[in-house]
Amino acid sequence: MPIQRFYPHIPQRYRLEGTKCKKCGKVHFPPRQVCNSCGSKELEPYRLAEEGEIITYTVVYTPPDDFKTKKPYVVAIAKMDDGAKLTAQVTDCTPDEVEIGKRVRVVFRKINAEGKSGIIEYGYKFVLI
C-alpha cells in the first residue's frame, strides 16, 4: 500500500482509534463522520478496548503473494469488551489452537512491507490470552 494511502489510517491502525456517539453511545470502528445508529454528527474519538472474544474465524491457506510465507494463518472477528467488532489476524498460534469463544488481546505487529526497500506497515493483530 502506498504511504499516501496508509498514512491517514495511522490513528486507527496503531492506536485502535474509532469514534463514539455522544448521543446514543454507539462505538464505531473504523471511525465514522455520522453515527450509523442514531444519525448524530456529534462523535468523539474513542480508543477501543484491547481485549475481546472470538465470534468467528477463518483459516487462510491460499493467501495473496505478500503473505505466502505466513500460511496457514487465522483471521478472526472478535467482539471487543466495549461491544465493537474488530477483524484481525490471530498471530503467535497455529490454526488448531483457535476456537470461537476464546479470549484475545490486541498486539502491535508488522502487517506487511513493500518488498525489501519500501515502507513497513504496522498495525493491530490478536494473540490468544
Binding site: T69, V107, K110, Y122
Partner: peptide, 16 residues
C-alpha cells in the same frame, strides 16, 4: 522474533 516482529514491535511491547 515472529515473522511479524522486529525491533519496533518489541520496543513497543516493552514500552507499553
Amino acid at each position: 522474533p515472529g515473522q511479524d516482529e522486529d525491533t519496533i514491535t518489541i520496543a513497543y511491547m516493552a514500552a507499553k
